[in-house]
Design a protein around this nucleic acid. Sequence first.
DNA 1: TTGTACGCGTTATCAC
DNA 2: GTGATAACGCGTACAA
Lengths: 349, 349
Amino acid sequence: MAKKKNITFNDIAKYTNFSKTTISRYFNNPDSLTLENQKIISDALIALDYKENKVARILANGKTEFIGIIVPNIYLNYYSEMLSQILLTYEEFGYKFLVFAGNENEEIERRYIQELLAYKIEGMIILSHTIPSHELASYQVPIVTIEREDRYVCSVNTDNYMGATQAASLLARHDCDVLLHINSHVPENWPDYERIKGFQDFCLEHDIQNEIIYTELGTSFERCSQNLTSVFERIEENYGGQKKGIFVSGDTYANLFLNLIVRKYGFLPDDYRIIGFDNSPISREAIIPISTIGQQIDQLAHEAVSLLVELMNERKKRKPAPFAQPIHKVVTPVLIRRETTEKEPAMGA
Amino acid sequence: MAKKKNITFNDIAKYTNFSKTTISRYFNNPDSLTLENQKIISDALIALDYKENKVARILANGKTEFIGIIVPNIYLNYYSEMLSQILLTYEEFGYKFLVFAGNENEEIERRYIQELLAYKIEGMIILSHTIPSHELASYQVPIVTIEREDRYVCSVNTDNYMGATQAASLLARHDCDVLLHINSHVPENWPDYERIKGFQDFCLEHDIQNEIIYTELGTSFERCSQNLTSVFERIEENYGGQKKGIFVSGDTYANLFLNLIVRKYGFLPDDYRIIGFDNSPISREAIIPISTIGQQIDQLAHEAVSLLVELMNERKKRKPAPFAQPIHKVVTPVLIRRETTEKEPAMGA
DNA sequence: TTGTACGCGTTATCAC
DNA sequence: GTGATAACGCGTACAA
């Protein structure tokens, strides 16, 4: 094995007696060559075992076809599913993804962004929520965020307000005496806040007794369990005898809460109705399949990439399109009815 | 806003009256400049608002610092967690990750690999299992696989055999009359097969009544549920009255199985002991927290990247180190005891 | 410690 | 249809 260096257009050119230019054209505009010559070159390619080098191409034409992604963490199924769906858009759009997992640390994520920029990514999708959108907007790259604070950047979000309304509405239709919403304190400019607002508005409009129960959820599993236990006890105390419709802000928490009930009673009593949010796997794998508001993650992901592609294309043409307002797209969630609202789970003992 | 093109070393050089080389050195070998000059340049950088361009650097020195990853899917928590842990190694090793989500389709994944190669990745981590390892080995790039068939490539795997032994052993210690292992049919050269083997060997050695129950698990949720239901009924029939120790090949399935039992009895009867595999979130979020064999995903990920980095460094030096045997690293799993083996879950009703 | 000159592999701009 | 030549932005002998 001699020390063969990489085969380049130059080598192919010599081998075929064409010029580099023609070789380049073979790849980028094959129709401009005669069929015979295409054949000659394609034969040469395999004869020489040519491997294309897109790095050089980038340097020459400036198009990296890279999209940078920063996810906050992947242990929440939501983000990993989203990431997965985003990656799948490669088939449609051809963009490659440089992915960073954020540490929920602003400084670190800032470095990640710098790194991405250094690789001349053409656009960025941000799932992480540490860096405020007005800072994101200051980087000179097209950006789309998903389900996070998005005042100054383009974004794609679930219609959380409608989702909450659907949830509350379903519970109401099941003749619940009181509607309870369990959530943590979310800033008003986060998309999640709409869940609280939607719930609240619905109850107000329909004059339904309700309470929003705030408790810390996001931290550790243990902490979250403890908090939900307290919440459960409080509910048992305060609303005994009433039929309770409980809308929990996420399926993971809904499942935890459901477990508390089932572990106490051995089943889901008739005076409890539960609905979660997200349609994450746990919702259907729970001891009693949990009704939920399904985020259409595939659509969210597709919309995000699709919107980003538009922005990137826009950028390649004009220089103006100057102070366009950020575009915010919205995806409608779907109501998924399962046993925690629909029917009496039949359980023994 | 004039049409400012990108600031390059040339611009900085002119601005500071240094040469391009000196600017380059400022970045790659700052110590070779006087402190004053460093200061001059660093001032110029912000004055001109310089953005580094790593693409050009790649072309010049050949080091992309890219690692390519192909994951089979991310809806299984296992893979997304692994991906997450791999991404986190950026902090330690500085490699950036180009990620593709495989479609379980050989042809498509082959294209992904070609694309990665075109971007001159320095190494590749393969989680997907569609492409056989001997083909992987034929690509001229350092490769490390994780938990998949790995005959011809370097790999990192959980010690599945030991994990299975631990599981069986725990069940045996709890005086189970019969040990049951639920799994799907896995090829003998897959790491997972060791779970079956470990279980079998343990039972043989200790002369314990046992059965390996094969059923299709990997497909859809519904299918999987159906199959497990059948399995459950069969077990109830065949092993009534005996104390059953059940080792399920994955936590997701263990949870499904546990739900079947609890939905029938309202609790986990004393003649059932269950242990899963993976320590995925579901195992502790289950109606009764499930004992499991914990894969140390963080370690697996770290070992994988670390090994890959070694391989990549090796490659940068010599040309020989020719036909080195593939290195296979192994990570020990940890036994995690929870309620499905340890104590009587207290349930009402 | 600093500068010169060339190379990395491709695309773009002209000209033929 | 095809070719020569100059970018693209940075690294790296080699020289000073």
